[in-house]
Design a binder for these strands. Structure first.
Lengths: 178, 178
DNA sequence: CGAATCATGTAAAATGTTACATGATTTC
DNA sequence: GAAATCATGTAACATTTTACATGATTCG
C-alpha cells in the first residue's frame, strides 16, 4: 500500500507546509529511510484535499508584496486518518542497495572496481554523517519544546549509528581485500 | 535503471539455476538489501535468453524419471554484460522502512502503538539474526573453495552488525519511552 | 489420497521516476 | 540583467507487486 499520504499528513501535523517544502524536508531529513518524488507529492496533495484530509491555509503574510504560496493544513479528519495508520501493522521494508548487491555478486576478479565503489561509498557516508550531526545539534536544544523532536532524535540516532557502521565496515573490507 | 538482469547474471555466474531457484536465493539470502518478484524474474529471463546473455542448460540428470527443470546458464556475452555493470557508478540507495517512518512522524500521543511496533520489529530482527548466523556458519568453512564466498561473507557480516544495531536500538528506545 | 510445495508464467493494477513546461523571486 | 533557486504541476515512461492460472511432484 502506498504511504505517500501518511508521510505528508505526518509532516503537516507539526506545521503548515507547501508541496515544495514537504519535498525538501523528505529529501534532507528522511532520505535515509524514505523517499518521495514530486510526481507523487503534488497529485497526492490534490487527492488529499479532495478527501478532506487537508485544506489550503491562506497565508496571511503581513507583507502582501510577497508571493502567496499554497500551504496545506491538516484537518481533524486528516489527523484521524494518520492515527489509524499509526495503529496498523507495518509492511516489510523495501531496500535496494547497489553497493551491497555488487559486493555480494562480485568475485576476486572484481577487486579493483569494488575498492573504488567502497571508497566512494565511504566518502558519501562520511558526508551524510556530518549532515546528521548538524541536524541533531539543531534539534537537541528544542527537545522539550516540540512533542515530536524526541521521536525524530531516536530515528536520527539510528541513522548516525548505522552510517558509522557503514564507514567502519568499508574500512575493514578495504583493509581485508588489499 | 532496472537491475534485475544483473542480479540474475550474478547468481548464474556460480551455478546453473532455474527461475524458481533464483527467486528462493534472493528471498532467503539477499532480502535485507535486495528484492525481486516473480513478475520481474521470469519475463527478464526470457529477454536475457533472447539477448544471448543466458541459455537453457539441458539438465542431464542420471535419473530420467525426474522432471526436467529449465535451468539457465550464463554465456560469455552475459559475463561481459555483468562485468560492464560492475564497473558502472552506483545509483542512490532506495529504502522504505515503515517502522522508522512511523517513529519519525509519531508524537507522545502514539507511545502505546510505537512500543508495540518496536517490540515486533525487535523480534523480527532477532529471527533474522539467527538466520544470518546459520548462513554464515554454512559459508565460512567453504571460503577457500569458492571465489565468491569471501564477498558474500562481507555482506553477511554487515547484515549481522546492522541487525544487532537495530535490536540494541529498539531496546534503548523502549527503555527510554517507558 | 490430500496437502504442501515445487515450478513456470502472465495480465492487470499499482507505484514510482523523469523530464519537461512555466513563471516568480532572489542574489550577485 | 543573468543565473540560481523557488515553486507548482503533469504526462510519459519505467518499474514493481499482486493475484491468478496451471500442473507436477513429494511426503505423510
Amino acid at each position: 500500500m502506498k504511504k505517500t499520504r501518511y508521510v505528508l499528513l505526518g509532516l503537516l501535523q507539526e506545521e503548515n507546509l507547501s508541496g515544495y517544502e514537504l519535498k525538501k524536508i523528505i529529501d534532507l531529513r528522511m532520505s535515509f529511510f524514505w523517499q518521495e518524488s514530486y510526481g507523487q507529492i503534488y497529485p497526492e496533495l490534490g487527492r488529499m484535499a479532495e478527501d478532506g484530509l487537508i485544506e489550503i491555509s491562506t497565508t496571511k503574510s503581513q507583507n502582501t508584496n510577497k508571493r502567496e504560496r499554497v500551504k496545506y493544513k491538516i484537518t481533524a479528519k486528516g489527523e484521524g486518518e494518520l492515527k489509524a495508520w499509526m495503529e496498523q501493522e507495518n509492511e516489510k521494508d523495501t531496500v535496494r542497495s547497489e553497493i551491497l548487491l555488487k559486493m555480494y555478486l562480485s568475485t576476486s576478479k572484481n577487486t579493483v572496481e569494488m575498492r573504488r565503489h567502497l571508497i566512494k561509498f565511504k566518502e558519501q557516508s562520511e558526508e551524510k554523517l556530518k549532515l546528521f550531526h548538524l541536524f541533531e545539534a539543531q534539534l537537541k536544544p528544542l527537545i522539550e519544546l516540540h512533542n515530536n523532536h524526541r521521536q525524530i532524535l531516536y530515528v536520527l540516532n539510528l541513522g548516525i549509528r548505522q552510517t558509522k557502521l557503514y564507514i567502519d565496515w568499508c574500512e575493514e573490507v578495504l583493509a581485508d581485500i588489499k
